[in-house]
Every structure is written in structure tokens, then in C-alpha cells.
Amino acid sequence: MAASAIRLPPASRIERLRAFTPVIVLVVVFAVIGAIAPAFLSIDNLVRIMNASAIPLCLALGATFIILMGSIDLSVEGVVAMGAVLTALLVQNGANANDLGFLAIPLVLLMGAAFGFVNGVVHVKLQIPSFMVTLGMSFIAIGIATVMLAGERVRITDTTFRELALGRVLGIPMGVWVALAATLVAYVIQTRTRLGRWIFAVGGGEDILRLTSVPVGRVRILAFTLAGVFYGLGGILSAAQLGQGHALMGQGRLFTTITAVVVGGTSLMGGQGGVQNTLVGVLIVVGLANGMVLMGVPPYVQTGVQGVLIIAAVALAVDRSRARIIK
């Protein structure tokens, strides 16, 4: 009812604490695992966790912008695969004579942007839910990646390029630095650009925006394009890390990406959360996976524990006073 919606009091102190639920979960997860398996908190292992977080972080950053709008992007796996394959084919490799080295990076990012742009345009102009557009797009991207390699995989022979993921600065893998730089860029976009703020506005109440001059359609298209760039970066890092490219390199990435975003506290309804939450969410998900291995939890139980944790984290973060209808 409109009248009662207006009368809802501003968030109470306890409700405000909810914003910090993901950080609390992160601290608790790390403390508990550290107590059981002290090796978990060793410098070596923390570096390992960081390294394992690099690619999921890049992907989740992109997805964050989409979920902030209340939309969803299922094209992650496809664009990552395209990115990895394209990277492998552009640098010195075992399949063709290309040797672009680091020049491949802007080209692959452009490819990611192109896929995102098409996602956005089809979604906005044809008025198709993002769920279906990006699902179809994922098939298309994986298909193109498969065609490009005729189902084969291609090895990267450019060792300098592979330093992008494997080299170390201050004892920390380059991939981590790249992901951190990406996080910083994403954070600046989110907080300091009009696009970033408008993405929040779209998620906060698209109907209200009709009263303002915010170009909602353009914001949506740009957000999908931006997300595509981040997936492209994830593809580049995957290729550099594994030293190869093939069409199934994105496999399993989609749901961990969305899980990380949501566990970080970004609402699927849109408008709440952000890049900082996603950083926390990725660390929770990756830290937990790493910790379970250290604690000797059989690998097959891990997805189950993750499932329980996701439900718990989201249930804790749901603001029951706000959303009356949950779908």
C-alpha cells in the first residue's frame, strides 16, 4: 500500500549494521578456518588466495554493474572464452604467425566491449529481458570461440606475455596487481562518473528516472558494454595464466561470479551494493574454497558447503522490512 510504504521509518541502527554483514562474514570465515588450519593465514597461502581471486574478481566487477541495475548477465562464460581464445591467437602462439604481444590486450578488451554492447543494444532496443539476451549471447560467444579454433586448443608460446599473470612484483603475482587495478578503475567509475551514479539510479527506481533527463536506455547499453570489457580482461588473464586458449575456458565461471557478487551484499533487485562489496564477496568465496582444501574437506563436499553459506549470507543480508515480494 502506498501510504504504508511512505510511512516506513528510516533504517534503524540494527538495519544499518546489515550493510556490514559481508565484511563480518568474511572475518568470521577467515578466523574460523584460520583457527582450524593455521596454515590458512600464512603469507604463502594468503598470496595463493589472492592469486586465485584475480580472475573471479575481474569477472565479478563487470557483473556488479549489471546486477546493480537489477538486471542479470549470463554471458560471462562465453565472453571469457572468446577473450582467452582471441588472446591466444593474437600473441605468439602455436597455431598462427601472430605476435602482437601486449598489443593484444586493447584488441581483446575491445572485443569484450563489442559483445557487451550487442547485449545492451538487443536488450534495450528489442525489449528482451537481459536474462535471455545474455544467455543467447553466451551460446553465440562460445560458438564463435569454438569455430575460431575448430574445437582445438591453442598454446601460447609468448613467455613475456604470460608474465602478465605469472610474474611477481613485491612477491605478489602480476595477475593480482592487474585485478586490483581493475578494481580501482571500477570503483572510480562507480563513484566518480555519471555512468556509475546513473547505474545506481536505474537500480534504485527506474520509474522515477522518467521524471529526470537521465538517458536510461543509454545507461543500460553502456553498463553492459563496460561489463564486457571486464569479462574480456578476465579472458586475457585466463589465457596468460594457463598459457592456452580454448572454447571451454569460461566453464564454471558464471555461477561463481554471480555468487560472489551477491554474497558480497549487492542486491539482485538492484540499487544496493557495489564494487567494494564484490571485492569482499570474491574473497569470501575464494577464501572458503581454499580453506576447505586446507582443512582436508573432500573436494566434493565443497560445493555443498558453499551452497549453505550462500543461503546463510543472503538470508542475513535480506532487509525484511523493505522487500515485500521476493521472487
Binding site: 542479470i72 555468487t259 558453499q306 551452497g307 550462500i310 543472503v314 535480506v318 522487500a323 521476493i326
Partner: peptide
């Protein structure tokens, strides 16, 4: 009151 997208994803896990 976990959205079905997330609850079903987790139960799938």
C-alpha cells in the same frame, strides 16, 4: 526470503 535465483543456485551446489 532468499531470492529463488540464489536459493536454487545454492541448493544446486
Amino acid at each position: 526470503r532468499v531470492p529463488s535465483f540464489i536459493s536454487s543456485l545454492a541448493v544446486g551446489g
